[in-house]
Design a protein around this nucleic acid. Structure first.
Lengths: 203, 203
DNA sequence: CAACTCCGTATCGACCCGATACTAATGCGC
DNA sequence: GCGCATTAGTATCGGGTCGATACGGAGTTG
């Protein structure tokens, strides 16, 4: 038996990891259940969920592959299936004709809306005080950021917390990195080229 | 586009869910990387990790299936592979000869020790204060418990927090459910028939 | 135009996973 | 003791995921 006595004091991070993994497994099982009616695998629902939240810089196969941590070849097949089922739409980019833009089809949005894959989670967290949830969010976000830096992966945050995001007026924003103007709703979507704005510590 | 304006105020739980899923994906990718040298899939490492932590009531294929949220048939194959690789040992139960007991072989323990699948996580959480981690653990544990109740799955906690656990002396404990005496180290393993002891709220 | 890079697709093989059917051991009623 | 239901685990099959590799087309640089 391999011992680990020196880890006695700081084993709480490991407990947290176990919780995250276990919750991840459960949510995966939940996704499996939610997709069973339509014979969709967990990864398909994850892709649909991602596409429902990706902004204009992040709705490509490449971005999805980075997000899911899979290869572009694998993701290509996933998208092929979703396309055959009519759950997504693919169209060429106007400027760079190599890239494919993706979005949910009406059928895809309806599926996501009806499957309600987050329902079980919402029930499970109903009795946890908003404050504790905010603290947990803050801690996990920090872990996520560090983990992504170490992995050199894209961060995938929302514009609202991005250092490139400029507020032009009440409702108009601007991405300083890409130079585009963004609507209010779009600043709440997730972006592939996100860069964290300082470190926003817990209140 | 399907709207969700009424969810404006309580969307933090959803953010937390996204974080958990994203971290889950990353850890899954991490497991894939960690197992690549030995051509092991994420699920294989998860099984090994589980077996390294399961107590005497929980080291069976059935318990592992419940833990991973997979069917017993699927888990049976996984165990077959791990057995062929010499990473686990299987032996019959003395009393009920239907059940198979599992434990890591020395090679399995060495693999787990050398793969260090939790290393990236430990780095990522290094700069988060213990207090914030404790709070996050508390919140996630509560979500996990509720989620498991709703799914009617086994809770899988450690004896130390179990309502059946009795302290006989300084080092000897006893499981009131099964009637066995447990050593100190064994009370820190995870158990399939765990029942939460009250609700231990955050400090 | 050539060389190079980049995005996406196609194909192949290993493997995951659930469904189903099966064996063997146990427990229950008699 | 003898049927019968239940339980733990296995075997097999088919659909699907996934990475590796190779490929083709678009963009970039010279």
């Amino acid at each position: 038996m391999i011992r680990g006595t020196e880890a006695r004091l700081d084993k709480n991070p490991i407990v947290l990891l176990e919780l995250v993994e276990r919750l991840g497994n459960l949510m995966r099982t939940e996704l499996r259940r939610a997709g069973a009616d339509e014979s969709l695998q967990p990864v398909h629902l994850q892709a649909l969920i991602y596409l429902s939240k990706a902004n204009r810089y992040s709705n490509t196969p490449q971005a999805l592959a980075e997000y899911l941590g899979l290869t572009k070849g694998t993701v290509s097949q996933t998208l092929l299936l979703l396309d055959r089922r009519g759950l997504i739409e693919r169209f060429e980019d106007d400027i760079d004709r190599r890239v494919v833009r993706l979005r949910l089809s009406p059928a895809g949005e309806r599926l996501l809306y009806e499957a309600q894959p987050t329902l079980a989670w919402q029930n499970a967290t109903r009795n946890i005080s908003p404050n504790r949830i905010r603290n947990a969010v803050s801690a996990l976000r920090e872990a996520l950021t560090t983990l992504q830096e170490d992995n050199e992966g894209a961060p995938f945050g929302v514009c609202h917390n991005c250092s490139w995001c400029q507020k032009l007026s009440q409702r108009i924003y601007r991405c300083g990195r890409m130079g585009d103007r963004l609507s209010g709703p779009e600043t709440r979507k997730i972006c592939r080229i996100f860069e964290a704005k300082k470190t926003e510590e817990a209140a």
